[in-house]
């Protein structure tokens, strides 16, 4: 029952996209669109097949995804404890909020020039851009999350005998979790864009690079293929990991994220 409804929901979701592809398949030959302007469906299919067979697509995807994964995991591991520590005291969190806000506003793409200067073109610069896109947004949201936990909840825990450690693990961390998840979702959104931009500028492998190089040769079929891969990957990350995570915490607990 559950399974069939999920499958039908997926079908309903995919149907409009299928219609769009069909439309594209008809429009390109009928109007004689030149391949330098926009590719035909079979051309993109062939490009996809070729790049899968010669392993280049996998290499680009693996490079992009691993950069995002490393940067994000590192950032979350550092940002969450830091954000919670900063949020424990009202005074400290009020003082630091404008600072964190300023840096989270700056997060991501704006760091590309200086990152490439400090780390040179390549892996280090790109991971740095992703790290700080996620780091400041997550730290800021964690700080915000901790400071929105009602004081009475902390009082309740204290009067039930919670010590410092239990306060962190049983009250502050779960209390800030909805904000943390929202922060990760937003930060990853910035990081993903930052990744594509940084790969266009500063590397020789990855999805952004694949697109940008294809442009030099007017290979629109590779560009469109890359765009579809980027869109699909992000949709999968967002819908299969981030949205369910957000739902599980916010809706079940009845918390509204700030």
């Amino acid at each position: 029952m559950e399974r069939t409804s999920r499958i039908s929901a997926a079908l309903i979701f995919i149907a409009p996209l299928a219609v769009l592809v069909a439309l594209w398949a008809v429009v390109v030959p009928v109007f004689g669109v030149r391949p330098q302007i926009f590719p035909s469906v079979p051309a993109v299919g062939r490009a996809g097949l070729d790049s899968i067979l010669d392993g280049s697509l996998l290499r680009h995807v693996a490079a992009s995804v691993s950069r995002v994964a490393i940067g994000t995991v590192l950032a979350v591991l550092v940002a969450v404890p830091l954000g919670i520590l900063m949020g424990v005291s009202r005074g400290v969190s009020a003082f630091l909020t404008p600072l964190m806000r300023f840096f989270s506003v700056l997060a991501g793409i704006a760091w590309i020039p200086i990152a490439t200067l400090w780390f040179g073109y390549g892996f280090g610069a790109i991971v740095f851009v992703i790290f700080n896109a996620v780091f400041f947004v997550v730290a800021y949201n964690t700080l915000l999350g901790v400071s929105t936990i009602p004081m009475t909840l902390r009082h309740a825990a204290a009067s039930l005998g919670a010590g410092r450690q239990a306060m962190l693990t049983d009250v502050l961390l779960p209390g800030a979790l909805p904000n943390i998840v929202t922060g990760i979702r937003t930060g990853l959104g910035f990081a993903w864009r930052g990744l594509i931009a940084a790969e266009m500028i500063a590397t020789d492998v990855g999805l952004g690079y694949m697109l940008f190089v294809a442009r030099d040769f007017y290979q629109t079929e590779v560009i469109v293929l890359g765009m579809i891969v980027i869109g699909t990957l992000w949709l999968l990350i967002d819908r299969l990991i981030l949205v369910p995570l957000e739902r599980a915490t916010i809706e079940r607990w009845g918390l509204v994220s700030a």
Binding site: P150, T152, L153, H155, A156, A157, A158, S159, L160, G161, D170, V171, P174, G175, L177, T249, W253, G254, L255
Partner: peptide, 20 residues
């Protein structure tokens, strides 16, 4: 001296942990 489990508190706003 400070909060402790020897004094149980019931709050007007309930103060239940929403995540538990």
């Amino acid at each position: 001296k400070g909060p402790g489990p020897d004094r149980g508190v019931v709050f007007q706003s309930f103060a239940l942990f929403p995540w538990k």
